[in-house]
């Protein structure tokens, strides 16, 4: 319980600092604050999808359903955080570029990522046999993850994009105020802890579902 309360206080404190202590970027003005939701959500998306790929590979090696539970749960949560990053980015685009959606390379690549991982969940939903579902979706997840660094970090940098890159840029050093970076970094940690908490709940729920299915089968 102490860890949960600490997480709650951590996120409240860093959000408050982000709003009240960190300066606003002159061009972005008040919309700078979207960054404290948008950037951590995007980073946690990468962590979640990498976690899903890791457990998919472990499932293929060990054939243990615990890994399948982790892979499925982290893909679901990765998709959720990706939606948060997309929606917050879209609101930002409206304020800065004049439209919610512009088919900018960054927006297009995130759209493809959403499609790829929605297809993963559709695949899982379409197979009844648990072992077959786990095996096929593990293979899919391993292949799908190849697109994540490509779509998030590489493609938007190949083509001209309106999206700024103040942190991961070609200039070799972060192009951002230290206070904004501190708040964003702390919130990445907070969002990551939140992800692992939600993940543990989803995995436990998956285990309960399997136990119930097993109980129903033995009753029949």
């Amino acid at each position: 319980m102490i860890a949960r309360v600490a997480l709650f206080v951590w996120i409240v404190a860093w959000l408050a600092l982000g709003f009240l202590w960190a300066p606003l970027v002159p061009v972005l003005d008040a919309t700078t604050r979207v960054f404290y939701f948008h950037f951590p959500a995007a980073m946690v998306t990468c962590i979640a999808l990498a976690w899903s790929m890791l457990h998919s590979a472990l499932y293929l090696k060990r054939r243990d359903f615990v890994h399948d539970d982790h892979a499925a749960a982290s893909a679901e949560l990765g998709l959720l955080f990706c939606l948060v990053a997309t929606i917050s980015g879209s609101l930002w685009a409206k304020a800065m570029w004049g439209a919610y959606w512009n088919w900018d390379p960054r927006e297009t690549s995130i759209f493809f990522l959403l499609l790829i991982y929605s297809a993963y969940l559709a695949l899982r939903g379409s197979i009844d046999d648990p072992a077959r579902r786990a095996r096929l979706s593990a293979i899919y997840s391993c292949i799908a993850f190849v697109t994540v660094p490509l779509l998030i970090f590489i493609v938007p940098r190949i083509y001209f994009s309106l999206h700024p890159d103040p942190l991961f840029n070609t200039r070799g050093k972060p192009d951002m105020d230290g206070r904004i970076m501190a708040c964003a970094g702390a919130l990445v940690l907070g969002f990551t802890a939140l992800f692992f908490w939600l993940l543990s709940l989803r995995v436990r729920l998956g285990r309960l579902e399997r136990r119930r299915e097993l109980a129903l089968e033995t009753r029949v």
């Binding site: 949960r4 709650f8 996120i11 409240v12 959000l15 408050a16 709003f19 009240l20 604050r33 939701f37 908490w197 939600l198 709940l201 436990r204 729920l205 309960l208």
Partner: peptide, 30 residues
């Protein structure tokens, strides 16, 4: 104003997840 809404949403989400965790723990005990 925006900070207030953000903190309210986070607070509600936190309470919801805590309740969810308690419910899962109850189901695991059965």
């Amino acid at each position: 104003m925006v900070l207030g809404v953000a903190l309210l949403v986070w607070g509600l989400l936190f309470v919801y997840v805590l309740r969810l965790e308690r419910r899962i723990r109850d189901l695991e005990k059965r």
